[in-house]
Nucleic acid binder design. Structure first.
Length: 395
DNA sequence: TCTGGGGTCCTAGGACCC
DNA sequence: TCTGGGGTCCTAGGACCC
């Protein structure tokens, strides 16, 4: 069973507004959840059903959405609200299954094999949908099938508040007529290539020669052929999986063409990334710094550390080195910092160079983290950063 | 006032080893 | 008798997801 919240960010924000005394339900008007245009993050993150009728799509710039529908209302939303409602949904679902794969903030898979066997699966889906409607006051689409890919494809059929099945014997009728762009894992780069090969529907793709696709697209070719044929043997992953990488990036309100300023932005990112890393009790083995120019060219440098660490100063020191190698002096739109090759702190061998200076640094991080946990992330900051943070936004 | 932010996985090429 | 073959590790870039 795949469960997908309809217009998640917008629905959840709408409910939260109503609970906080607002009269207008933004689900009933042409509305979107969007970024902040003055900070150059003005894109559509979610849309109401009425906004969808105007052809507004997720990910497009707000100004384009406004061209499609001049009276569109834009709301900024609130990530804390999303997390709260997401948790409510997963707590409700936990009453049905201990095995839940949280696929994203608003999507999950449930392994309902035992219900599939005694053909009670549809009854369960109806019951879950009804409870979500009544108790949580939003709607979900539910997809049912014999594997994850088909269940996910099914939940994407007609919306909102619908339950669909897509069993193997329904593939030809329900999935093959759809345009290839509807298939999971076919994105904006692959679709035009397939179109050039006169492959326009999922059915066209399914009937292709598998080996030809592999020759042309490698591993991805194999996956797209299998998905088009409804083949997927992946399991519902219900165990906690620690993150493999942690990163933060920021689009700057104005392009920056100054290495010192980029370094200060990087320090802010380093503070944030390492704070999150330490919250997971993990250490990193690789540091990656990326830049996006004003023409949307992305480039990055990464380097392995001689040791693993979660210390702000050490990560920042490497990040700074990488930025200095990377930066060629052009106007920069976005700066990113990512740590990779993560491992559990307690399972990591102590560095041979675990000096008293390192211990002091670790103590400093710990102390600052505690203050941030207790009084809020921005309760304490660096003197050198005061005044520049208006060009950066971090949640 | 044109184009977010956080992730995972894959590929290609180069360095280096035996 | 100019330059094999197999492997690992590392880095840069890109595709895709929500």
């Amino acid at each position: 069973m795949h469960i997908d919240v309809n217009n998640a960010f917008l629905s959840w924000y709408a409910i939260w507004r109503l609970k906080n005394g607002e009269a207008l339900d933004i689900r009933e008007i042409p509305a979107v959840i969007g970024g902040d245009e003055s900070k150059r993050s003005g894109i559509v993150l979610a849309k109401s059903n009425l906004a969808k009728k105007f052809g507004i799509v997720t990910g497009e710039p707000l100004y384009q959405a406004r061209k499609k529908c001049p009276e569109i209302k834009v709301f900024q939303g609130d990530f804390k609200v999303y997390r709260e409602y997401s948790n409510k949904l997963f707590n409700l679902l936990a009453e049905y299954k201990d095995k839940i794969e949280r696929f994203s903030i608003d999507e999950c898979f449930l392994d309902m094999t035992e219900y599939l066997m005694n053909s009670k699966l549809m009854d369960k889906a109806v019951e879950i949908q009804k409870r979500v409607n009544e108790e949580l006051e939003f709607t979900v689409n539910i997809g049912l099938s014999s594997n994850k890919l088909l269940a996910k494809m099914a939940s994407d059929f007609e919306k909102p508040n619908k339950i669909h099945t897509l069993y193997p014997n329904e593939i030809e009728k329900k999935m093959w007529p759809l345009p290839i762009g509807e298939l999971f894992m076919l994105g904006r780069k692959t679709i035009p290539k397939l179109y050039n090969m006169h492959i326009k529907t999922i059915g066209d793709l399914a009937k292709c020669d598998k080996n030809e696709l592999i020759k042309k697209f490698g591993k991805h070719g194999k996956i797209m052929w299998e998905y088009a044929n409804g083949i997927d043997d992946s399991k519902v992953i219900y165990k906690y999986e620690p993150p493999k990488s942690i990163g933060n990036s920021t689009t700057l309100a104005k392009d920056v063409q100054n290495l010192d300023e980029l370094n200060r932005i990087l320090l802010t990112l380093a503070d944030h990334v390492t704070f999150r890393l330490r919250k997971y009790h993990m250490v990193a083995g690789v540091v990656n710094v990326g830049l996006r120019t004003k023409d949307f060219k992305d480039y990055s440098h990464q380097r392995k550390l001689d040791f693993t660490t979660s210390n702000t100063k050490e990560i920042y020191s490497m990040a700074k080195k990488l930025l200095n190698e990377l930066y060629k002096g052009e106007p920069i739109r976005l700066v990113s910092l990512k740590v990779d090759k993560l491992s559990d702190k307690n399972e990591t061998q102590l560095s041979l160079f675990d000096t008293s200076e390192n211990k002091k640094q670790e103590k400093l991080d710990e102390t600052l983290d505690k203050i941030k946990e207790k009084y809020g992330y921005s309760s304490i900051t660096r003197a050198g950063k005061l005044g520049i943070e208006k060009n950066i936004k971090l949640k």
